[in-house]
Every structure is written in structure tokens, then in C-alpha cells.
Design a protein around this nucleic acid. Structure first.
Ligand SMILES: [Mn+2]
Ligand SMILES: [Mn+2]
Ligand SMILES: [Mn+2]
Ligand SMILES: [Mn+2]
Lengths: 221, 221
DNA sequence: TTTTATTTTTAGACACCCCTAACTTTATTT
DNA sequence: AAATAAAGTTAGGGGTGTCTAAAAATAAAA
């Protein structure tokens, strides 16, 4: 049984491992859980004692099988609750993170499965992130940043790399949504900005900053 | 902003005041929040410092207006979540308490209202308890224990005094539910047990213990 | 290879929430 | 009124989770 705080740390480590593959460093964790390095070190000792991570001072940490199981369960709950908040309660996709951050810690042996069923066993959350299944399995998303798409190629938007309210609202304002077909019209060499079309209609000019945070799946056309 | 623990204490005090009217004593609180008297005293000091209760050592406590507002908000959330768990997720009425005990602490300026709307603005929770409205108003339930109903009188079951799984399952087993019409057929003077009919059909013999925990509203017939 | 900068850990502290044991106050008996 | 019982508080302490400041280890630069 883990505390909320322990769960938050495990989830943070899991996310960092997903992205970097490497052992995770203290400051990165501190940034994700909004604490200081010293607090992270304290927690790493506790999680290590509980065999949830493997930890060698100064050398970073990684999750044990046990720790990963816990982390994935938290991620599963977080994403399922996000689906609930958006699809059932009518929240916008930029409003749900903080609430899900709390709901993910609700402890019950039956709640997650009932919620999953109630929601119709969704595969992805409102941000396009995959929802781990009951057993903790989660397939790797085949997606790349839009910034990497060659000129003239079509793709479907499947996710976002930046989950901030600011970015999500920016996308809303420009009517760019998950599932939209995006075509790269023209790339400017100078600043790597690009002209794109959304659903074959609207043409928009976006910066490289934005293009890096839009994740797409190349359509085999 | 209160901690989970503070909210639990405030809710406990609120419940005790509802039932007794009097200043609430330390041991009663300890029993409700599953702690010891010493812990209660510690917390009373903190809540008093925060002006959430008025507290005089050895003389019991009562809620300030501020404290009552917080307590009722927690109760509102608890009961709304219980409705969600039963009506949307398919839980039984004896299974939801512990989960609602956690969900009631989810902090969000918008969640409660969205949930309330989603559920269709329910008036009562799965146990017949009234749900405070958005402004914190909660009307007094006009109900009495079935044990107090005179022989030959009809009433409608509106609630339970005992929320334990054991009792709720007992009622399920005997198909006694909220909204059922209950008529007192015969009372045994010796042990105050009684013969009742449920929905004009089934006749059941129940102990006084049980009759005290079934709450009914007399039907004006 | 030194020196300097960055990262990480340790030391010491504090708020929170709970506990047991001992003491004090209040209530009840005799 | 004195003795006893019950209820409530204080003293002292433990685990958790966070912090700042200082020290140690590692990485980068000169
Ligand atoms: Mn969280
Ligand atoms: Mn998400
Ligand atoms: Mn609670
Ligand atoms: Mn209830």
C-alpha cells in the first residue's frame, strides 16, 4: 500500500523512463512532482526500502517490476478519470489534469474496473495517451512530432507532447483536434515553422515550437 | 483550505451535532473518525485556531458558521459521489461508503456542481440521506424510527440509522428497500419486536434492534 | 590535470497526524 | 463531603513529507 506521495513519485519516474529510457535523475523527478532535490532523495530511500525502485546514490533510479506495476496502475486510473471528466461531466481537455491528479489516488479494489466498464473500455485519454489495460499492458504509441513530418505528407493527429493549459487552449482556438488529418504544405527552412492544412480545409502557419508538441501518426497514403 | 483529516473531523462534529443538538464530546468524535481521544484534542486545538470550531477545554465543541460550511460541503460531496457509485457504476448501497469517504476530499471549484448536474440534481443519497444543495442548505428530514410507529400504522421507508454493511445487507436479504410501504401489524410487548408487512405483501418479523434502525415517514392515510 | 560548475546527498528543522501513558478535571457514588 | 469513576488533556514520542543550507560526488571546462 502506497501513500499518495509515493504514487506520485512512482508515476513521475515511470514517465521519465518512458521518455528517456535511461536511469532517471533526481532533478527531473523534482521538477515533475514539484518538490526539491533533497525531498526526492529522501523519497528515493523510502521507495528503495520498499523495493519499488532500484536506487544507487548519485547514479539515478529505475523502477522495479513491483514499482512499475504500481506506477502503471496510477496512470491507468489517471487517464480513465480524465475520460470520465471530459466525456461524462463535460470538462474541456485542458481542465482535467489537476482533478485527475487527485482522483488517481482513490483506493478501491473494484472502482477502476467498474469505471472502465462504465466508460466503455476507452483506449485513449482526452490527450491521446494510451490507457493501460487491466493487466497493466500498454502498447507503444506509433507517433512522431509533426515537426518531423516531411513536406507534402499527410498524417493524423494522435496526441500532444505538451499537456499545458496554454498549449491545449491554443490548439482549441485554432480548431486543431485529435483525429484531425494534417498535411504539411510548406516548411520554412529559416525557423522551421510550417504551413499545414487541417482536415484538408483550413491552412495554418505554425511555429516549430508548436509542431514539436503536436504528435501524429503518418497515414499510409 | 483544509486537510483531509480536518475535513473528516469537521464532518464528524457536524453529524454529532445533528443527532444530539448539544456540544460534542471528545470520545464521540474519536469513535467516528477512528482515532483516540488524545488525537481529537490535538485536532480540536488546530480547528479552533483556524476558527472552524469553538472549543473550551473539557466543555466540548461546536462548529462555527465557517466550520459548518466546510462540513456541509464535504457531506454534499460524499452523498453525491455515493449516488454516482450506485446509479452510474452499479455498486450496491452497502459498498460505497469507503470509496465516498475518499472521494469527498477531492478538491475542485467546479467538480461538485458538474457532478450534481450529471446526476440530475439528486435530492437524496442511496441511504436516503438528504443531499445539501449548492448553497449548503439542507432541510430536516421528517422521519422517525420504525420502532416508534404505532401498531396498525402505515409508513414509507425513507432511510436507515445504521449504515453498516451488515445491516444494509440484512435489509437487502429481506427485500426491504427505500420507498417501500411498511405497515406495523403487531408489536410484541415483551421484546418490542414487531410483525410488519412490506409493500402490502410480505410479512416479516423484525427485532426492535432492526426496527430502530429503519427510518420511516408516516403516510397521512 | 587542475579548477570550476553542476548535480546529488546529508544535516537539521518544521508541520502534520497519530499514538500511549500519565495527569487533571468533571461527574457519579457512597 | 470524600472517594471513586469517567472523560478529557498534556507530555512525550514516532512516521511522513517537505524545506534550506551545507557538504560531497560527479561532470565539464580550462
Ligand atoms: Mn497525483
Ligand atoms: Mn491525459
Ligand atoms: Mn473522508
Ligand atoms: Mn450515505
Amino acid at each position: 500500500m502506497q501513500t499518495h506521495s509515493e504514487e506520485n513519485y512512482l508515476k513521475a519516474i515511470w514517465k521519465l523512463v518512458e521518455h528517456s529510457g535511461e536511469n532517471v535523475n533526481t532533478n527531473a523527478i523534482a521538477a515533475l512532482v514539484h518538490t526539491r532535490a533533497a525531498s526526492v532523495t529522501d523519497m528515493m530511500k523510502k521507495l528503495s526500502d520498499k523495493k519499488l525502485i532500484s536506487y544507487q546514490p548519485y547514479k539515478g533510479v529505475s523502477l522495479t517490476a513491483k514499482g512499475e506495476r504500481v506506477a502503471i496502475e496510477v496512470v491507468r486510473k489517471h487517464r480513465l478519470w480524465e475520460v470520465f471528466l471530459v466525456e461524462q461531466l463535460g470538462y474541456k481537455w485542458d481542465e482535467v489534469h489537476d482533478i485527475a491528479e487527485q482522483l488517481e489516488h482513490i483506493r478501491s479494489s473494484t472502482l477502476t474496473e467498474k469505471l472502465d466498464k462504465f466508460l466503455g473500455f476507452p483506449k485513449v485519454d482526452p490527450h491521446g495517451d494510451l490507457i493501460p489495460d487491466k493487466s497493466g499492458k500498454i502498447s507503444k504509441q506509433q507517433q512522431i512530432p509533426l515537426a518531423q513530418l516531411e513536406s507534402g505528407n499527410k498524417a493524423i493527429m494522435t496526441g500532444v507532447a505538451d499537456h499545458s493549459t496554454l498549449f491545449l487552449r491554443f490548439l482549441d482556438k485554432h480548431k486543431i483536434h485529435l483525429g484531425d488529418t494534417i498535411e504539411t504544405k510548406e516548411k520554412t527552412t529559416y525557423d522551421s515553422s510550417m504551413e499545414i492544412s487541417v482536415n484538408r480545409k483550413k491552412n495554418i502557419h505554425i511555429s516549430n515550437e508548436v509542431a514539436k508538441n503536436i504528435l501524429v501518426r503518418k497515414s499510409r497514403s
